[in-house]
């Protein structure tokens, strides 16, 4: 377990780094499409965190095996009997399936967000002629100024 103790801060750190980096891109990029990509990285990194929780050392994917099948025996050959007895289910150690299910959902949600976001971007490009965040802000500010001048 000592190796796992060293790896723990490292893998969580990578996950949290990806969250922060994705968030930064989503908040600061001037190109709207890159913002959406950053948003996607941020969403995916939330998934990374869940999946990190699901791993069981020495485990296998949560597809039930018969304990006496060759695959199960190959898996078991690397672990002590006591470990399998304590943490296995019917003689086989599996990783936790619940985070997998949740993240399957989250990935689909991410794709849905991306589709709607891109559709809005396509409309923005048709309307404003640009997808640069600062140019759009400048265009909107100018439109507002024109309205004010019309009244004056």
């Amino acid at each position: 377990m000592t190796l796992a103790l060293v790896l723990t801060p490292y893998v969580y750190g990578l996950g949290f780094f990806m969250m922060a980096a994705g968030l930064l891109i989503a908040l600061t990029s001037r190109h709207l499409i890159k913002r959406l990509i950053g948003l996607g990285v941020f969403q995916t990194s939330a998934g990374v965190f869940y999946i990190l929780l699901s791993k069981v050392s020495g485990g296998t994917a949560a597809i039930r095996l018969e304990a006496d099948s060759p695959a199960a025996e190959a898996l078991a050959s690397r672990l002590d009997a006591a470990y399998i007895a304590a943490h296995g289910v019917d003689g086989v150690v599996y990783s936790n399936p619940l985070p997998h299910v949740l993240i399957l959902t989250a990935i689909v949600v991410g794709a849905a967000t991306l589709a709607v976001g891109l559709a809005i971007i396509v409309r923005i490009r048709e309307t404003y002629g640009t997808v640069d965040f600062e140019e759009i802000s400048a265009l909107e500010a100018r439109a507002l100024r024109d309205v004010r001048e019309d009244e004056a």
């Binding site: 723990t8 069981v56 485990g59």
Partner: peptide, 21 residues
């Protein structure tokens, strides 16, 4: 947070394990 790969962590030991069983 739970140790990476820990089979006894709350997520792996509680509901996750119940599903497998």
């Amino acid at each position: 947070l739970p140790v990476f790969g820990d089979p006894g962590s709350p997520p792996s030991a509680y509901v996750g394990r119940l599903y497998l069983e």
